[in-house]
Design a protein around this nucleic acid. Structure first.
Length: 422
RNA sequence: GUGGCCAUAGUUCAGUUGGUUAGAACGCCAGGUUGUGGCCCUGGAGGCCGUGGGUUCAAGUCCCACUGGUCACCCCA
């Protein structure tokens, strides 16, 4: 039996982890700058948490969740997204009681059983933020700016921002009825998928990629034309602030997110650098979700972004992350010096110096080659001569220079000299 | 769930109209006067040619199925 990683899952190998770590660190730095604090929730929850928040009729809940019954007969689901868990935690831990506005972020694996393809895995990673407790449009814009700042910090510029307002519990139902009426008139001409959605989720029909559907619905009324005063004002303010911040965007009145909980602002960041799965991030406001989950009605905004898609772009750009390297490689010239070298290596490591030595009992030549391959800054060869004299030649591998050093003080010669970066 | 493409060393790929012991490059290992890396030279290890059937005197090569990968639909991050 040759074991393989489960379909749609991937190992992130040692050659790739430096890039992941660098990107994760950049993401955290930006979140911290915006004063968002990390929250870590379990990767699985009661199935109904997701069903209720994301929506029973969505594809995610309907056909993509990893759901199983555990040994105590409880239905468990591996989280397909982050917001539901965070909101559950917000309610459970009364985070709203500690401060009026809770700003949190998360980063971690999510699970959806879809057919894998470029930019889509079954276990993938998302980072995201939620600002809970604020109804203001300035909070929406902070969330959008936050997401964009991360891409900016990573040197990603080739993206576009689309925004929409999907209305609230007052104006959206009214609009939906109007839209349904219009759609029914041409129902028989629409694609089968769209026909199904007319009653369940008519707004999704307008977001269909089917060219024929697009043409047929081109003149349909848009939600943005039916917003009530509050939603319209909110939307105007969001657009005004984005403009003032110098953030380019386009309004897409057909943008509907695949999760049911959004109200008012919805947005999506896409990139042409990606394959057909071109969404880098998406999010919006969800003022009704917390109440829906049994908490006190609390307005909230957030976004989620895909790590793998971000990594795809960086890889394409030839982005190189700094990799850790040994500071010094201590080579063993003769077996008689081996124990001293091993002990010295450990000693240097305790002093905070990245030190490496030979564990394979290889030839000196092979050890030097290894030191070079590891990108070690220094190398020193230790044999009986060196141990007798208490001195050795410390070699700088990139400029070939050597200097005689006292072995007892080895750490002092390398501590503040050179660098362990590439 | 549906469809297209692909499947040969660790990796990227060659393998002629089916025809002897399946190749290259890179990587890996070992040497190049016995204590010093990168470049160069020499040598070496490493493939039931994804699996199972079939056609044929003969299959890596042709046919079928399966498995896996990949891309797209769908959906989304």
């Amino acid at each position: 039996m040759n074991y393989r990683a489960i379909k749609g899952t991937k190992d992130i190998l040692p050659s790739e982890t430096p890039r992941w770590q660098f990107v994760e660190q950049t993401i955290r730095d930006v979140f911290h700058r915006f004063n968002y604090k990390e929250i870590r929730t379990p990767v699985f929850e009661q199935t109904s948490l997701f069903a209720r928040s994301i929506g029973e009729l969505t594809d995610i809940v309907g056909k993509e969740m990893y759901t199983f019954v555990d040994r105590s007969e409880e239905s468990i689901t591996l989280r397909p997204e982050g917001t539901a868990s965070v909101m559950r935690s917000y309610i459970q831990n009364n985070l709203g009681q500690e401060q009026p506005l809770a700003k949190v972020y998360y980063i971690g694996p999510m699970f959806r059983q879809e057919r894998p393809q470029a930019g889509r895995l079954r276990q993938f990673h998302q980072f995201g933020a939620e600002a809970t407790g604020s109804p203001t449009p300035e909070t929406d814009v902070e969330i959008i700016a936050l997401a964009l700042e991360i891409y900016k910090q990573l040197g990603i510029t080739n993206y576009s921002l689309q925004i929409n307002s999907v209305g609230d519990e007052e104006c959206r139902p009214k609009y939906k009825e109007i839209l349904k009426t219009e759609l029914r008139k041409i129902a028989d001409k629409l694609s089968p998928e769209s026909q199904k959605r007319i009653d369940q989720n008519p707004m999704r029909v307008l977001d269909s990629k089917d060219e024929n559907d697009k043409a047929l619905t081109a003149a349909m009324p848009l939600i943005t034309d039916y917003l009530n005063e509050e939603c319209a004002e909110h939307f105007e303010r969001v657009k005004k602030l984005l403009t003032e911040y110098g953030i380019p965007f386009t309004v897409n009145g057909r943008l509907v997110r695949g999760l049911d909980y959004y109200t008012k602002t919805a947005f999506e960041i896409t990139s042409t650098e990606l394959g057909s799965q071109d969404a880098l991030a998406g999010g919006g406001r969800y003022d009704l979700l917390i109440e829906e989950l049994g908490g006190k009605k609390t307005p909230s905004v957030g976004f989620a972004a895909g790590m793998e898609r971000l990594m795809m772009i960086l890889e394409k750009k030839g982005f190189a992350a700094p990799e850790p390297h040994p500071m010094i490689f201590i080579a063993v010239a003769e077996d008689s010096a081996r124990d001293w070298v091993l002990k010295k290596t450990m000693e240097l490591r305790s002093l905070g110096i990245a030190a490496e030595t030979d564990l394979l009992r290889r030839s000196l030549k092979a050890q030097m080659k290894e030191a070079d391959r590891q990108g070690s800054t220094y190398a020193i060869v230790i044999g009986t001569t060196e141990l007798e004299k208490g001195k050795g030649l410390l070699k700088h591998l990139s400029d070939h220079s050597q200097r005689e050093v006292t072995l007892a003080d080895l750490h002092q010669y390398i501590r503040n000299d050179g660098t362990n970066k590439t």
